[in-house]
Design a protein around this nucleic acid. Structure first.
Lengths: 249, 249
DNA sequence: ATCTATTTGTACGTATGTATT
DNA sequence: AAATACATACGTACAAATAGA
């Protein structure tokens, strides 16, 4: 076995703590030993202990609180943080809009079909109310941007309802986030007046109808068409996704 | 704006450094200021600086080296680390095998179609050579496990060739990793002798034929059938994916 | 409202390890 | 082989936050 990086103490400490979390099946909210206890039981200095809790914190596994009864607590990573960490991975990777849509086209119709007949009326109503903001053509470029973001939010919320597949929901929300993030920084559309907002709104309305009616196949088809159309108007030249890091939850 | 967590110094420092990476468009290999310089320019102590570099390191954004000319260097996050971080997110989430296969079924046929006609002969040959290890039925349970892992490796390698979509490749490799990890810890199949290895081997061979012949539609169909069949023999009771954390690259 | 105890957060000084020149 | 430049680790002292009396 050659060339294993010499893992430093803070990481070894972090790994043993991860081991505790797995072995003792710790759950979110459970407290880890205090700094002083860790120093004593692991025989390391305060600085080392602190560096390792920073590592675990950065990886989203624990949170720390000060004061009596404080300390480091096991934590369920927030989706926002997971998205942020994944965006770090993609930062140097040159993802194109095509790449994103390839994934959306494969996954979102599947999700739509899954949701059919499984969303309760009040949720449907809530989503329908959100459609108003992009029902009418935008008056200027900024308005168009806002409409794009709003309509992406629709997809995110759809994914959040998720027919019970957290990973599917995560991926869909991640891709929507990336596109929404891009919208803020770039001009994503060819110049000229399209009616992107209203067109998307129409599809979203139909989608909700199909989902409400429990017609999975129709929902699938609609989502597919909708995404194809949305992709068609995007400017594939402005494609590279390298951008700022996303904020962390 | 209420309730924003009081971000501590190490995180503020880490964020300003991230800012530098984005603004100055630093690339992998570029050096960050030394600890001493950071202490001076940001007016914080050594401990704080070290904690923040641990954070950036844990997030996969930098690596540090000791010695003269050492320091913290911008780094392109490895896929292994990204997979590990994402697995932290899913750790408490109760993903089922069904969930994983839903995603594989949506994405991998897409990938197979993409690859058709775009993989050079030597790569195809290399992949064909790998098929031998699961061409014959396994003699015992351990052998069957190994075959399962080997056949998952085929999928990972296929994804690595990726028709140029890094995110697609990542997701596919992640799902394969999760399944492969599960295989190590659990009995994934119903008792009884199946011929999983040889069946998978046959499909993989056909897939390579289709990809070599440039027949995208056939590749897509084959992959779809193959995954359906593979999913069918899995034990959906042993479904929950909560398991150990994956090792980091 | 104040004090007190507990626990993390920050700073600083020193010594050691490690790789480059 | 030695000097240099950097990270790594330790120990201590004190500051800040929070819960409870």
């Amino acid at each position: 076995m050659a060339g294993t990086t010499p893992r430093r103490r803070p990481y070894r400490v972090a790994d043993t703590i991860k081991g505790w979390i797995v072995d003792r099946q710790l759950s979110p909210g459970d407290r880890l030993p205090s700094e002083a206890e860790l120093m004593a039981s692991l025989g390391v200095s305060k600085g080392t202990v602190r560096e390792s809790t920073r590592v675990l914190e950065a990886q989203g596994l624990v949170e720390t609180r000060t004061g009596p009864g404080g300390g480091a607590f096991v934590r369920e990573m927030s989706e926002a943080r997971a998205i942020s960490l994944l965006s770090h991975y993609l930062y140097f990777k040159d993802i194109s809009i095509r790449d994103i849509y390839q994934i959306r086209l494969a996954l979102e119709p599947e999700l739509a079909a899954n949701l059919a007949g499984k969303v309760n009326a009040s949720e449907i109503q809530r989503l329908r109310n959100g459609l108003a903001s992009y029902a009418e053509p935008a008056v200027d470029l900024d308005g168009e941007r806002q409409q794009h973001i709003d309509s992406l939010t629709f997809h995110e919320e759809l994914a959040a309802l998720s027919g019970g597949n957290p990973l599917l929901a995560f991926i869909i929300r991640f891709t929507a986030q990336v596109l929404s993030d891009l919208t803020v920084y770039r001009r994503l559309y060819e110049p000229g007046d399209h009616h992107i907002g209203p067109a998307g709104c129409q599809y979203h309305a139909w989608l909700l109808d199909a989902i409400e009616a429990g017609d999975g196949e129709r929902a699938r088809t609609l989502m597919h068409e909708h995404l194809l159309e949305a992709q068609a108007v995007m400017n594939d030249n402005e494609a590279q996704v390298r951008r700022g890091f996303l904020a962390e939850g």
